[in-house]
């Protein structure tokens, strides 16, 4: 370990699928990197892109968002709206070189291993990408 860069990743997970998936990963004792800090929201449709932008400008190295698979939303269509919003947000952030730090994944309540895998992958990718340059800046 030592001086290796450990990214700080903020996670927004929906109450019904991804949070339960993360919970399952925990109760199944699946190992995944501890770099993610999870905030539970009721639906991926609740994730205001403002949250993501605020996290990034405050120096988060990545923002991970999880929701129910399309068609499985507890509120029928929250994840469809979330998908459009995050696609638009990533397109905006692309112009400023921040889009790779944001991702949205569909993980159901039964997909504990997939959650662990996605988080592991994101941590690896963020390590390759390096720290968020805004972290050390006065913003």
């Amino acid at each position: 370990m030592g001086d290796e860069f450990e990214p700080k990743i903020l996670g927004f997970t929906c109450n019904w699928c991804t949070y339960a998936g993360a919970d399952l990963a925990g109760t199944s004792r699946i190992q995944y990197p501890p770099n993610i800090r999870i905030i539970r929201v009721m639906c991926s449709g609740r994730m205001d892109p403002l949250f993501v932008i605020k996290a990034l400008t405050n120096g988060a190295d990545g923002v991970f968002m999880g929701g129910c698979h399309p068609g499985d939303c507890h509120y029928t269509k929250g994840n469809y709206y979330a998908r459009r919003r995050i696609v638009a947000l990533r397109e905006v952030l692309k112009a400023f070189g921040l889009d790779e730090r944001v991702r949205l994944r569909w993980i159901s309540a039964s997909e504990g291993p997939q959650f662990a895998e996605e988080v592991t992958k994101m941590v690896e990718d963020m390590k390759k990408l390096g720290p968020n340059p805004l972290k050390e800046e006065t913003v």
Binding site: P49, L50, I53, K54, L56, T57, A88, L89, V92, L93, F96, L134, V139
Partner: peptide
């Protein structure tokens, strides 16, 4: 920065 990025979105 937060303001301009948010407004851009």
């Amino acid at each position: 920065l937060f303001y301009h990025l948010t407004r851009a979105y």
